[in-house]
Design a binder for these strands. Structure first.
Lengths: 359, 359
DNA sequence: TTGTACGCGTTATCAT
DNA sequence: ATGATAACGCGTACAA
């Protein structure tokens, strides 16, 4: 079949991509000049520039990204690794990052790790091979040696989102310590002395900061923290459901629950309803982050709110600064505030018999 | 500076990328052999293959994607254009698409259009220039001439998600006609005769199918549709709030509201609460899609449910089939079922005075 | 079975 | 100010 080209006048299978050469020929100049025009070199005569631009316009030419890449130009692409974009926190971060990056001509590639370090490893490798310019990363376990080694070996500019590493990466996160401290103070002020904390992610900074915030608020008030009231093993809804049941079955159950993690609230509410407990009559409740459910539940839920979209924006901005060399390669940290939004789910501690949970 | 190389033993600014040549040298073969090994050509001796693989392993070499791209290899990248990933319907679709694509070595680039055709135009152009292998697209307005022309000119394999064009693209969507028909039938069966429909997106198939479903259910029952009860201009929460207020202020208000659009429910619920109306006592309510809010609201909301994640998967699968040439280039359509999930927000039509809305 | 050499489309460095 | 030309790293026909 390849022995002799068919006599087709216009082979339908040859829509050969137009190149600089075509443009140069059409404009009657050399390819170097075309390159100079599109890259804004100041040494081009107005008249020639016009001819070239006209030719480009007419042929609809755009430089080949692949060829540019071969010449060492940046791919203008950044990867964003997180566990699951269906988590509204992450989708807001993605939108924030994308808005910033798109404006600067970067593409955002989303990559779900499902929270599995092995997958994180593969994704870092992928982005390295694909010549991503940088990475935004919500690592699952901040101390996973394999992932850390691969990340370092990849030599990619990285901004950690809601996480913090020993490596010299950028870091962007909300001030969960202060947020949790403020929420706990508020509950203590309402008279609560047994405050449960349900949250997850032992392996990352968010969880540590939240626990520390709870502890600090207790210390300030000279109150002890009962380890029995700490349930810090998962962000999953059914974990919250089960742990809430267990907590309320305690001989001396909590009078307030702080459930920090977007999926936890449904589990807590379901458990409380199953037990016939009312909010805030029997137990006060603070959740995080804000959501339509929090606003429209009855009662409306008091929440620790923070701006995930802004977190994504800040991460992208920090990364761009590093890519442009404006930011020294060392560690840089951006912290965004949280806000306690008081609604109807908290009340003064109910006075009830010691050890007597309502049936 | 280039006249004489500085005597630096290991120049810190020269981490020159390792190439096929390095691998070839290390393995004592020619570059062609290296290429044959990595591309699985059957004509390589076992012994040589081992040497090459060892060299690759040792040097940590991976082929340059840019160079491959220049050779005409596919970029293994697909773009997904939609209005805003913070909409949970889209984030689920993205996850579905990503899961399928990642498994096949493709990257998924997310691109928000904010619902603006001008932005859609720019994004299509971007993906064309960037040599995306294909596109998944939830177009804002199915009849926008500019966008359609650009899409056609881009000559990219396209799968429309929840949309349908006259162009020969793939099409994946939920069966909203049947879903809305079923919901309307259910309400009619409960005795409702004045059923309002709040939804948006006049410019796309989803909206048309929903309206048609409502009409068909009425026709089957020999009932008229009152155009006054159709509010089909937006998917925004505040639109739902305002229109619900207006609807309930009508001399002859609806006894049931069907609010189809993920952001509409909060608006409807807020409006009804402001007016002191109860669900389902004063008005029955059906929403779409399902959400935690629907499950945990009091009363729990009856919904038309469909699987956005599966829609994303199907879109990616259809696109991949086209990319692999398994799917003829013409139009192909995948339709996924909806399900009516009955909860507590619908009741038999309340008997009240003609024209008398509760104060 | 393996090595050689060309071309992909761009940018950058020379001459002119 | 502009033109010619050498890389960039890979895949692949073709030669050996």
């Amino acid at each position: 079949m390849t022995s002799r080209p068919p006599p087709t006048p216009t082979p339908p299978t040859a829509p050969k991509r137009t190149t600089v050469h075509d443009v140069a020929r059409a404009a009657g100049v050399a390819i170097g000049t075309v390159s100079r025009v599109v890259n804004g070199a100041p040494t081009v005569t107005g008249e020639v520039r016009q001819r070239v631009l006209a030719a480009i316009e007419q042929l609809g030419w755009t430089p080949s990204v692949a060829a540019q890449g071969l010449r060492g130009m940046p791919a203008r692409m950044v990867g964003f690794i997180f566990s699951d974009i269906r988590n509204p926190l992450y989708s807001a971060m993605v939108k924030g990052a994308e808005d910033v990056l798109a404006e600067q001509g970067y593409m955002l590639v989303v990559a779900s790790s499902e929270g599995r370090p092995a997958r994180e490893l593969a994704l870092i490798e992928l982005f390295r091979r694909r010549r991503a310019d940088g990475l935004i990363f919500s690592i699952e376990d901040e101390s996973d040696a394999d992932v850390l080694r691969t990340l370092e070996a990849a030599r990619l500019p990285v901004v950690m989102l809601e996480r913090e590493l020993a490596l010299p990466t950028g870091t962007v996160g909300a001030d969960h310590l202060e947020g949790t401290r403020q929420a706990t103070r508020y509950l203590i002020g309402l008279g609560h002395r047994r405050i449960a904390l349900i949250s997850g992610g032992r392996g990352n900074r968010v969880a540590r900061d939240r626990l520390r915030g709870l502890e600090l608020a207790h210390e300030e008030a000279g109150l002890p923290v009962d380890p029995q009231l700490l349930r810090l093993d998962s962000f999953a809804s059914d974990y919250a459901l089960r742990e809430t049941q267990l907590l309320m079955d305690l001989p001396d159950p909590p009078t307030a629950i702080v459930a920090l993690g977007i999926h936890l609230l449904p589990g807590v509410l379901t458990a409380l309803r199953m037990k016939g407990l009312s909010v805030p009559g029997d137990v006060s409740l603070i959740a995080s982050n804000d959501s339509e459910l929090c606003q429209l539940a009855t009662p409306a839920i008091t929440v620790i709110r923070y701006d995930s979209y802004a977190l994504g924006r800040e991460a992208a901005l920090l990364l761009l600064r590093r890519l442009r060399g404006e930011q020294p390669a060392g560690a840089a940290r951006v912290s965004l505030p949280t806000e306690l939004v008081m609604r109807e789910s908290c009340a003064a501690r109910p006075h009830r018999q010691p050890g007597g949970a309502p049936s």
